Simulated assay, not measured.
Amino acid sequence: MSSEIMDAYWQAPPMARTMATAIFVTSISAYMGILPFSWFYFTEDRLFKLLPEIWRLATCFLISSKEFGIILDPYFVYQYLSQLETTNPKFARKADVLWYLLTVGSFIVLVNRTFLGGAFFLQGLITALTYTASQDQRGVKTNFYFFTVPAQLVPYCMILASLLMNPAAIPLQVSGILAAHLHDFLTRLWPEFGGGSSLLPTPGFLSYFVETPRVFRRDYGTAIRPPSQAPGSGSSTGASAGPVFPDSWRSRGSGHRLG
């Protein structure tokens, strides 16, 4: 049973899996007093000093809200980030998803530190992820807690829920929607309707952080992943374009008899 759970865990989208796990582990550790909150919050005086604590740009997104938020916040991050990582046509590469997290997160921090204050920004990022994931699901019905609503209304339902449970989080959530909308305008709306190119292109170097390494070291030898090929270019092994599993032998090309 435990091996099946671990197999399912490792088969999950890697970026969504990693971030949800980091939020859960960090939040549990902080609320139980294992790690101090002072290691994670964002403040400019810790960033702009002789030895800048640059990790705070990331750790300020790793603390969930209290109680049920320790479970729900990682769940929402996993749910919507995995949609961006696997099914959203706007993000063709994992580097695009990473660039989205960097740019949207930076805008959330900038807006909140300039106008609203605050030191932890996960609620804004969750709302941004929800907004972006729902833009390509217009007309689709989805569940939000015990209600069925149009998918594009889910981020606003989150704000409505905060009005009842945690009103202090509403400005942060609104900043998340603004950040996601700005990203959408710069990368999709302007190229489509303004006749220009993307104003926020993904830097090429980010691919090195998210691509699968070509060489794998194993206990019984070394495996080398072949270079990726452009769509429609064919395969040097004669593999078909169909799914690998369950008919995995179809991907081995034509057979040859020995002797």
Rank of each mutant, 00 (worst) to 15 (best):
G195W: 03
V104Y: 00
S82N: 08
L125A: 08
S64Q: 08
A119C: 14
A133W: 11
S233M: 14
I108F: 04
L153N: 09
Y145D: 05
F144D: 00
Q79F: 13
V109I: 08
G255D: 14
D73F: 03
A22R: 03
Y145M: 12
K66S: 11
R113V: 09
S82G: 07
G194A: 00
L122S: 06
S236E: 15
M158T: 00
I28S: 02
S27K: 04
S248W: 15
N88C: 08
F216L: 11
V174L: 09
I34W: 15
S134Y: 13
P74C: 03
V244A: 12
L164W: 13
F91Y: 10
S106F: 01
P155Y: 00
Q11A: 13
A168S: 15
Q11E: 12
I170G: 08
F37H: 13
A180V: 02
Y220S: 11
Y100Q: 12
Y156A: 10
Y41K: 02
A168M: 15
V97H: 03
E192R: 04
S27Y: 01
C60K: 04
F120L: 13
Q152G: 10
S2D: 10
V25M: 14
T127V: 09
T148R: 01
F185K: 00
S235Y: 13
T103M: 06
S38H: 11
R113H: 01
P89Q: 03
V111T: 03
K49Y: 07
V174G: 00
T103W: 05
S106Q: 02
